[in-house]
Each structure stands twice: as C-alpha cells, then as structure tokens.
Design a protein around this nucleic acid. Structure first.
Lengths: 361, 361
DNA sequence: CTGAAAGCGCTTACAG
DNA sequence: CTGAAAGCGCTTACAG
C-alpha cells in the first residue's frame, strides 16, 4: 500500500517544521536563521535565502505561546490600574501612552488589568502572575502592603504608589515641590488667603501636595495659616467640597486663591464658584495639578503643575525590563524611588488678586 | 549511595507535576481537578481536597503559555488603535473600558497594539497575529482594505470602521440619524443658517454626519442650503477652521448655529468664537457629537449626540469571542453591521437663536 | 559544522 | 475508573 503523503491542512497556521519541509532543512535550521542566532552563521547564504523565501511564501509567524514556553518569557508586561471616570482617565491615558510606546520600542506586548478597587482585588493580582506576563506595572496602587503579599516570581514596578510598597521601586514626580512652587507663585502674585482643596486621606500623593502647600505658606511671614479643605480626586468632589464651604462660610470669607489637589477638582471648584456668580480668575484664582487634558479644555484654561506622565510610563517599562532580564539587581531594600521633576504651567485661571490690583491702581 | 531527594528550586514557579508530587498523584489528576473537568468526577472527594490543598500550599498558578500551547487558545484578545492626543483619547478610553469589562467577564486578557498610522502599519498588524491573540478588535480603522490583506487564521471585529472592510463585522452607531436629529433640533429651535464643521475627508463616519445634517436641512423648506466647512477631528483643527472662516467672512454672515463633527472640534470652535468676542450660546449655538468627557468639562457644557461607546466596546468583545469559538459562523459576506442607537444630550451650548428671541420678544 | 533529541508545562486521547 | 504517553510549536544543549 503506497504511503499517502500528508497534506498540510490549510486551517492550521504554518509551523517551523512546515517551513523546514518546504525548504528541505530541519526546523532547527529555520529557527536559527529566522531568529538571526549566531548559530545561523554556519548555514550557507543560499540555504538561508531559501529558508527565508519558504517562510515568506507560507506567511510563517512564530507561535508566541510555544516560544514563550520554551523561553520562559512572554515578552509581555502587565499594567494594573483602576480605570474609572474623571481624572484617572486622563492620568491613565497619559502614562499608558508612555508605557505603550516604550513597550513597542522593546518589542513587548502590554496587557491591561483593570481593577475595580485596589483594596479588594489583591487575589486578582495574583491570578495575573501566572506566566502570561513577565512583570507588572502598578499604576497608582493604593492598597496596604500587609493586605497583599505581592506574588513572588514576578518583578514589579509602581508608578505614583499611594502607599509605601516595600521592595517595589516606585516612579513618582516631585509633587511636594510642585505644590510648594505653585503656592509660592500664588503668594508671589500677592495672594494671602490661599485655600487648598485636598485629595483623599491616607494617600502619599495628596499628603505630599499638602506638605508642599504648607511649607510654602510657612515660608511667608505675612501669610495667614493654611486652610486645607478635604475634597477628593474627581470633579464632583471638588464641586461639592467648594459648594459646601461656600454655604457655610459665605462669600465674605472667600480665599483669594485656591490651590487644588488636581485639575479635576479644580474644574469642579470652578463650577461651584460659577454657581454663586464668582468668576475665575477675576474674583478668585484657581490652580490645578497634573496638567491633564482637562486643564487645556476647560474655560478658563488652568494654571497647573505639570508632571511628565508619559515619560514616567516609559521609564516604568524600562526599569521593569531590567528587573526582568537581570533579576539579581532587585536586591531588596536598596530600591530607591525615581523622582521626575515637575514644572509650573501658567494659563488663565490664576491672576493677581483683585485687592492687590486695586491697591496698585 | 543513597539517593538525594530532589528539592524544588524556589526560583522556579511550581508546576502541575510539583503539585502532583506533593499530593501523591499524577499531574493529570491535578489538571483534571483544578480545571473542574468532567473527568475529575472519577477522583475521590478526599483526593480532590488533598490536591486542592497542595495547590494552595505551593501557590500553584497554571502556566499560561503552556496552557495556550496545548489548547491553541491564548485567552487573549488584541485591540489595535491609533491612540493620540485629543479626541481619540476620550474615544479610545470609553470603548476600551467596555472592552476591558467584557474581557474580564469572559476571563480574557486584552492586549493593546498602539499604531501610529493605519495606512502605514499594516505589516505590524500581521505581526500581532502570531498566536499571542485569539482575535483582534480594530478601533476606528482607516486604511483601505486593498492596502492590508488582513491576516488569515485570525478573527476580526471592527468598531467605527472608517472604511469598508469586507468580511469584517463592524460595530457602529447610527451616526447619520444622530446628525439628522441634532440638526432637526437646531431647526426646531428656530435656527436657519446652520453651519457644519466637518471631519476629515474620505472617512465613513464624518460622511454619515454630513449626510444626516444635509438630510435634515432638506427636510425644512425655509432653511437655506447647507454650509459645510472642513475641519478635522481635533480641537486645534476646529479652532483653525473657525478662525479662518471668521477671517474670510466676518461676523456679519455668522451662522446662528454650528453643528460640529465631534466634541473636540466644537471646543476648538468655541475657542475661536471667544477670540472675537462671540459668546456661546448667546451669539451662536454650538453642538458637538460623541458626548465625550470633554463635553461635560468645557464651559458651557456641550449639547451633543451621545454614542454608547462603552456598550459598543463590550459588544465587540462578545462578537469576537463567538467568532473565535465558532469559526463556522464567520460565513463570508453575510456580515452585517451592528448599529447602536444614539441619543441627543441637551446642555448649555445650544439655545434658541437671538433673532428668534428678539422676534418673539 | 550539523541534526536528532530532550524539554518548556500543560491537555487530551488512549491503552491498561 | 486510572495513569502513562504523545503532542502543542518552539529553543537549546548535546551527541555525531
């Protein structure tokens, strides 16, 4: 009985062996040539060309799963974040763009894990670390380390960690300095009563912004004590906090300037001011933080503190990749934060105080 | 010489075999139990518990790559998009959120491929389809099908395809109707001279919006012919188009209302109007499209057409998954679009025209 | 210098 | 009902 030649089923994607068969060589040879391994030097140029040609004809694509299994590398990094409406959207997008860019540059895939809540989802985090990713970037994590024992075997990097995560290198910006500089700027314009609409309690970032604000006030003898009003991160929280304050205190005790924990809160704050007929910056100056997209879209555009979010995302990828490829470097507590500089951005929402203007006139 | 017992190296993640060894059963038994396969019914409850316990103790996680190789399924879907500044950011985020949500619901990973340019990156698209994903969602693709022969062996779904892609099911919203309804609304308020700031040439979406606009004008006898001014998708394009028009035509020939191809363009348009002292909506009404985040952040908030972007993203995942699991269904050209309804959203940027108000007064 | 073999960690079909 | 074996598609170390 004659052997019936096996015909490659068209449904199946071509494999290394298929290419090898077509070129009359072993699968190994194909692998070596296609990967440009040093071992490919021992294959004659003609054979190499024949192999490439066969691969092209068959539209061969190396199978990612098989490769990952053999290499113990997925060429994929994970990004865990809470992606919700409002500010975090802009924040996420900017950092994420940087992550995607750097990933592409290093031929890595980026896979996104959307969490609802840091405190409640630690188990999910563990599930992600099953070999589908080589390392994980935590975007603005806010759980307590004692809640989540981070999975072993997986390198981590955090961006804007809002709680201390021992052993995880954190990428942050000089938020305290940003808050300090912005408050100094407001003081320099002549403002004295400066309110701070603050972020959620117990988070590192908002605390740093408060500290910068208070340090700046303390540096100015003529400034009255600080006025920190808790708000949150989102526009509605900024609006509600300001509304509430106005209702209790009336316009008479109005601050001359309001420095907000971020742009979203600044926008909500402006909304609340507008509701009672107060204009920005004529009646009150309002400053934000982040320089998110929102800062340029709102009217007036926001004076704010710019963080290089995109660059921070790129750096996160690069640091993570070195941790993946050189696990030795992860040496325990020597982890320092990487701190990016911030920069004041001047736009329409801040001007000299009305009183100062009058005095001058 | 006594056999030295092998000690599991801590550096390596535990495998099925490790768990089996610890529980005194075969790797296969562990697999069956942990996967809840029907074959596990033949394993005694005690053994099962022992296996689970061992897995827990070792913190066993099935290796995703090995699983993918054996199953020929990565449990991962790809999302290809051009993610740039401005409008597409908001657009992307909304759809992407829906994609992430549906993915998580179906235990799928979502991996993002960020393209610079649809027309120039077709080769990259092919590279993605190497088994690392089971299917691909194209977000607002805008290449020509004759440029990219979409990779075989990979199921596709598109969202807001801006060019016809034969054989790819497209998820879209009833954009023409949205444009029609919005224009009708403006007419109903008494506006007659209504301008349309249009999107880029040659794309399906912008063309549909123009068609809806023109159809509405045609339905109203008293309306003058349409006034379509090309702009683009981004705020600066809206601003520049409007600036240019104002410079050429002056305020005298100003339209009473401007219907913009999207919210971003509307925001740019409002900016250009403000530059020459024209207020919205007192002097001109301005309407957008999309109901992006930007629409609620800008002042005045935008009257716009809402598309259920999030739901569209979720649907994309679901359709893609059926295509992945039931490849037969992909039967050629029977692919119909899935069209989501749109909805007018009324906010502050549109009012009755000043003239009408005067006439009434 | 070359190719056959073993192995990555899982699943599934198949002998006992 | 059970477990040993083969196989998914690749890579790497190792005999010839």
């Amino acid at each position: 009985m004659p052997k019936i030649p096996k015909i490659a089923k068209p449904a199946r994607a071509p494999t290394l062996a298929d290419v090898g068969r077509a070129a009359g060589v072993s699968a190994m040879a194909v692998s070596a040539v296609l990967n440009g391994a040093r071992t490919s030097s021992r294959i004659s140029p003609e054979t190499r060309e024949r192999i490439r040609e066969a691969a092209r004809k068959l539209a061969y694509r190396p199978n990612a799963a098989a490769r990952a299994l053999a290499n113990r590398r997925m060429q994929t990094i994970g990004v865990a974040a809470v992606i919700e409406g409002g500010e975090l959207n802009h924040y996420f997008l900017e950092v994420f763009n940087g992550i995607l860019e750097a990933s592409a540059r290093h031929d890595q895939n980026a896979i996104v894990f959307s969490l609802r809540d840091w405190a409640r989802d630690p188990e999910r985090l563990h599930r992600f670390c099953d070999g589908r990713i080589d390392g994980l970037i935590l975007l603005a994590p806010a759980f307590r380390e004692d809640h989540v024992a981070l999975p072993a075997h997986t390198p981590f990097v955090s961006v804007h960690a809002n709680v201390p995560l021992p052993g995880v290198l954190n990428i942050e910006s000089d938020e305290e300095r940003g808050a300090y500089e912005m408050t100094r700027r407001l003081l320099g314009l002549g403002h004295r009563r400066i309110m701070h609409l603050a972020g959620p309690d117990g988070l590192l970032g908002p605390a740093r912004r408060i500290r910068g604000y208070e340090r700046a006030l303390a540096s100015q003898r003529s400034a009255p004590p600080g006025l920190v009003v808790p708000a949150g991160f989102h526009p509605v929280e900024g609006r509600d906090a300001m509304r509430h304050w106005l209702r209790r205190n009336g316009k008479s005790r109005l601050p001359e300037a309001i420095f907000c924990v971020n742009d979203s809160v600044a926008i909500g704050c402006i909304e609340a001011l507008a509701e009672v007929g107060l204009r920005v910056p004529e009646d009150v100056s309002v400053a934000g933080f982040d320089d998110s997209l929102a800062a340029r879209i709102c009217v007036p555009q926001l004076t704010t503190v710019r963080q290089p979010l995109r660059a921070m995302g790129e750096r996160a990828v690069e640091i993570l990749l070195t941790r993946i490829t050189q696990p030795g470097t992860t040496a325990g507590s020597t982890d320092k934060s990487v701190v990016f500089p911030v920069e004041l951005v001047t736009r329409g929402s801040v001007s000299a105080p009305r009183a100062a203007t009058l005095e001058l006139g």
